[in-house]
Design a protein around this nucleic acid. Structure first.
Lengths: 348, 348
DNA sequence: CTGAAAGCGCTTACAG
DNA sequence: CTGAAAGCGCTTACAG
């Protein structure tokens, strides 16, 4: 007795079974299933009836194994965490493009863990996905050169790859952070705190650069005691802001360069009763941001465009495009909602 | 010139290539790749070197085609929309269980469209996923009986299947809605509006039942003019609440039975300046709900538990468990945060 | 400890 | 219009 029988299941019917039931060769079944022309109508009819009776389902993997192209009609997507709002919005954008190509999407969470990035990549390559869209985490993506050489195209999104010349689609983080910071300066602030995510992440570095450049352009000296980087959780961000507020000369404004960090900053400002006293600009959208009081001024990324652009690039590569690697930069845009317009001591 | 050459790619190396380079048979390569015992150490060494030199990657689909079990080490997950917070939290919970089994997850958005449900199911069956976790949308899941019979187990989550006796893991919606409504009654309300999602969705029906029963238990007559169902978007919910507030006898409290609906209700109450005057209890968590002022009292679903339980059930089925279909009910729990405790006219 | 033959479900490349 | 043979990349079931 086989395991299948123990489980009360029969195995899936194959073309052979359909062929036997309809009295034709499996090649003819293949023709009907693939809707090839040149099969007599009554045979088509008979094969269809048999397939339907047996609930036959073509095995796409077996099909693609023999086919020349060997396409699995699937792609892989490596995200920070499928459940965070940024990642899941990216996921949806990629899914929508993939669907147009009749391709399904494997998604996985890397959790900023290089080993998980490696593990997921090999799991997906082993399943012969036609390509990968990756938000890179590992310190170095050179290991992917092998996979690309062997036929799996890779496009990076949100962060550029390191040690690998490959397509990537990223937000203009420097300019976005520059504008967010300049917005605070324009509203009369000079003591502007910077809150940053893990500084090994390229986007965190770039946003810090934008902040530094905006201060420089405005002639505001950089106050190191107001810079808090490597905040990995909203709780760490909250604690950092609580400390900043206790300084002898506390900041009058905060630039929070990532969404969880913004949440933490908000909690600290609320707890201190300063959410109407200290200005706040965030980077990355927050859900329900418009319902908060005051509304949160945010430098918004165009996540749908990031994801859709990356997916479209990938499908061009899958189709055979081997032009040089592209870097596509998507602008970020500041939306004022109240928290960023709280006036500072130098407001006119 | 083949397409691959045009694209500047070579095809992936196979066991045959590794065998040729290391001077052994492909069977021996297979042994080494699968870490079977009984291969002499120097041969293992040579094969490993050749595989590494060629960047050989085993083809799991070809392997599973020949293997007895035929497992693809992948499962499919059908969600409402991968980018909504409820769906993506469910996704993460399923992913975490799948990872423990060395299985990757295909995820797709159904968008409450029965045709997309059917399309995604056949796409996933064609790729021979080992099982499916589904949030059902189609009016009827009887079509899945064929797939189960042919060896693809299916577990439903969040909503029960219709016309199919199959495993499902759902929230106790009736009790949750009963408690949410009773909470408002206990705070002195009798004119309590009900806001519901599409009433074809089972969870929406159940939550309505809980509301009706709670009113009945408290001896509060059901006021039909306060019941607004089939709200599909936050905007429709906002408009519905705006209308309710304009009634000659407006509600003093609102029970919003789904998260987007709660968002719409919140917007309407804010716009009318009544967010501190009209009580509000929502069902389904909202991001940042604790940062709103007042905080939103919510009947919370245990989304991680829903997803993890469904995935674990699925893996048991994949392993061969053919015991009768199970229905697992996960309790929901009310968390008071302020909006639900605004006193009504009958408060003691 | 190693390998030649057959076969998983399908399509290609022929032949008729 | 239809089908027999070979083969995709791998593993099973043998044999030595």
């Amino acid at each position: 007795m086989s395991l299948d029988e123990v489980a009360g299941r029969t195995s899936r019917p194959t073309m052979k079974d359909v062929a036997a039931l309809s009295g034709v060769s499996i090649k003819t079944v293949s023709r009907v299933v693939n809707e090839e022309a040149g099969v007599s109508p009554d045979v088509v009819e008979r094969v269809r009836a048999a397939a339907s009776k047996l609930d036959y389902r073509r095995d796409l993997s077996a099909s693609s194994l023999r086919r020349g192209d060997g396409k699995s009609q699937s792609i892989g997507l490596l995200l920070e965490d499928v459940s965070n709002p940024f990642s899941s919005a990216l996921h949806r954008a990629v899914e929508d493009v993939a669907r147009q190509h009749g391709v399904v999407v494997f998604a996985g969470s890397v959790d900023e863990d290089p080993e998980r990035e490696h593990g997921l990549v090999s799991a997906l390559v082993a399943r012969r996905t036609d390509g990968l869209v990756i938000v890179p985490t590992a310190p170095d993506q050179s290991y992917l050169a092998r996979e690309r050489r062997n036929g799996t195209p890779v496009v990076f999104v949100d962060r550029p790859p390191v040690q690998l010349d490959a397509d990537h689609v990223v937000t203009d983080n420097v300019t976005g952070a520059f504008e967010g910071t300049a917005h605070l300066v324009a509203h009369g602030h000079r003591r502007i705190a910077f809150l940053g995510d893990l500084s090994t992440i390229s986007t965190a570095q770039e946003r810090y650069t934008g902040y530094v450049e905006a201060l420089g352009a405005a002639g505001v000296p950089l106050a190191v005691e107001l810079v808090r980087r490597d905040l990995r959780t909203d709780e760490q961000a909250r604690a950092a802001v609580a400390e900043l507020l206790a300084l002898p000369e506390p900041p009058t404004a905060v630039f929070a360069s990532q969404n969880l960090v913004t949440v933490g900053a908000l909690r600290a400002l609320r707890a201190a009763g300063l959410h109407r006293g200290v200005a706040l600009v965030g980077f990355d959208s927050l859900p329900l941001q418009d319902l908060l009081d005051p509304g949160i001024t945010i430098v918004e990324q165009d996540v749908r465009r990031l994801g859709a652009t990356a997916a479209e690039l990938l499908f061009r590569r899958i189709a055979g495009d081997d032009s040089p690697a592209q870097r596509i930069v998507i602008p970020a845009e500041l939306t004022a909602r109240g928290s960023g317009e709280i006036p500072g001591p130098y407001a006119r």
